[in-house]
Amino acid sequence: MSMDRRKFLKIAGISSVLGLGASVAQATHNIWSKGLGPDQVAQNSKALKAKHWAMVIDMSKFRTDADFRKVADACHHIHNVPNFKTPDGKVDIKNEIKWIWKETYEHAFPQQENPYMEESLKEKPFLVLCNHCENPACVRVCPTKATFKRQDDGIVMMDMHRCIGCRFCMAACPYGARSFNWTDPRPAIDPRFENREYPTRTKGVVEKCTFCTERLAVGKMPACVEAAPKGGMFFGDLENHNSEVRKIVKTRLTVRRKPELGTGPSVYYLIGGKDHA
């Protein structure tokens, strides 16, 4: 039978499109339908559970610089957070990665400036970290759900395997809580503090505090909370009326960063310290 070239090309084109389409559909179906069945998974009995994990920070308990260093190091060391420095030993502000760190009052709460405030108060350091917002802008913008809000406990989590490194979340976060791996972090990880039980990240993905989900899963408090001076940091379930954090937030004066943006941060800062617990 004879067929002209045009018809041949049409048939070839349609068959390839159908073939490609079928294989793409097959692959997508495979990706979406695999997964572990409920009889294949279990939870550690010691795991800590909550409906809404939240944190209260009492800055009055942090008296020396060493107090901050201890908290930041606890987190950064167990999570293999790299320490980027410039050739002259200063912090490399371009490449730096930080999950929890200290900022002065005027930077932690930019809208609350008071020009007549005492200098020492303006310079007062505050611990800042990801706020694990109730209405997170970063989750709203992520095109792959690489950052997502856990349904059961409200933690804003990072899936390092899915992140495409578009950094939309970094643009969206109103608190500057996120860091990006501009290059391979491994050379900048201090080998003295390497934690072989936790992965590193690779270049090209965003990272941030995860409220230590891996520790919560085995019944431990987040590393920063454990390393904080006594009464400095509280961590618990805001939906549990008996939890420390709920009681503090209910009875004492606390502030959150940029609450007017509607993000609903879960990190509360206690005002007017004094001895509590």
Partner: peptide, 22 residues
């Protein structure tokens, strides 16, 4: 390969960290 992928999604996304061998 597939098992590791499933494990990853289970741990990171579903917070289920224990695997029961069939």
């Amino acid at each position: 390969m597939q098992l590791l992928n499933d494990w990853r999604d289970s741990v990171v996304r579903d917070n289920e960290r224990l695997y029961i061998s069939t």
